[in-house]
């Protein structure tokens, strides 16, 4: 005999199309919810504004990552070629004026470091990877990667109430509203 306690994650409501989801998102935003998200099979353009989200801060990470790459490229080439072990090939000088010959490597390392910053910065901002999520317990959520448009409002949102939020989702046109619970 086992007793399984369940913790409420929140409500999941389906909307029939991208445009219906867009209009619903504007209403959820205006109702003042904070902990909620729209789940769609593809990126719906303009949804950021409808959800009241700011522009992603990822470019800042990537800018500094790229600059670090440029400096690494310059440092690697300059320190090894001019400082530690001046290498004279084809009678070319080994001093600061040879820096144009280091540009290709500085460029490639800028791109390489930016690429890695993009990857890891993105994962950090998306809070991924994670092996499980309460939403995966839903019986309909698997369609979010196929053809369904969902709004999920989390129970930890201060405005959340078991009856009020359900009613609210119904009012804005949500279908097959589901209380998603995770096993504790």
């Amino acid at each position: 005999m086992s007793t399984t306690r369940k913790r409420v994650y929140g409500y999941l409501a389906e909307f029939p199309s991208a445009s219906a989801l867009y209009k619903a998102a504007e209403k959820v935003r205006d109702a003042g919810f904070r902990k909620w998200d729209c789940h769609t099979p593809y990126p719906v353009h303009g949804l950021d504004g409808a959800m009241g989200m700011k522009r992603s801060i990822l470019p800042w990470f990537v800018f500094f990552g790229g600059m670090l790459g440029t400096c690494t490229g310059f440092g690697l080439a300059y320190i090894t070629q001019v400082d530690i072990y001046p290498t004279v090939v084809q009678a070319k000088p080994a001093n600061i004026f040879t820096v144009p010959a280091f540009f290709p490597i500085m460029f490639e390392l800028t791109i390489l470091f930016s690429g890695f910053t993009t990857l890891f910065g993105l994962l950090a901002l998306m809070k991924l990877p994670r092996l499980n999520h309460p939403l995966f317990a839903s019986r309909q959520f698997h369609r979010a990667t196929d053809d369904a448009f969902f709004v999920a409002i989390e129970a930890r949102d201060p405005k959340f109430s078991p009856d009020g939020t359900r009613q609210f989702l119904e009012d804005i046109g949500g279908k097959s509203i589901e209380l998603v619970e995770e096993e504790d």
């Binding site: 719906v44 959800m51 522009r55 990822l58 993105l122 991924l128 990877p129 990667t145």
Partner: peptide
């Protein structure tokens, strides 16, 4: 494992699209 727990939420898509653009 390779999908890394992707849920298609717009809070993910927003950063994802920026990363793709970058």
């Amino acid at each position: 494992i390779f999908a890394m727990g992707w849920r298609g939420g717009n809070r993910q898509w927003s950063h994802y699209e920026m990363a793709y653009l970058l």
